[in-house]
């Protein structure tokens, strides 16, 4: 499947989902999967989004995707 075919399939999937009632979107749109570190602590608060992003970057496993995408944005 090339990119155009993939995009067309995704758009068709979007159109089908738009036909579904909002509560069905919620029913099938939320799932709980344990995320190491993120789900292991109690509630937490950050005074600034910069603090939050930095905490994610420094503490969460990279495979969770919470780290910054490029070194231009990295806090290192």
């Amino acid at each position: 499947m090339n990119q155009d075919e993939s995009d067309d399939e995704w758009k068709a999937q979007c159109r089908r989902q738009l036909e579904r009632p909002t509560l069905d979107r919620i029913k099938y749109g939320f799932a709980w999967v344990h995320k190491p570190v993120l789900d292991d602590g109690a509630s937490r608060a950050f005074d600034s989004m910069v603090d939050y992003r930095q905490w994610c970057h420094e503490n969460l496993p990279s495979y969770l995707g919470y780290r910054l995408a490029s070194t231009d944005h990295a806090y290192e």
Partner: peptide, 8 residues
């Protein structure tokens, strides 16, 4: 606070 994550 900018971001609060409620887990409980």
């Amino acid at each position: 606070a900018d971001f609060v994550q409620l887990k409980n």
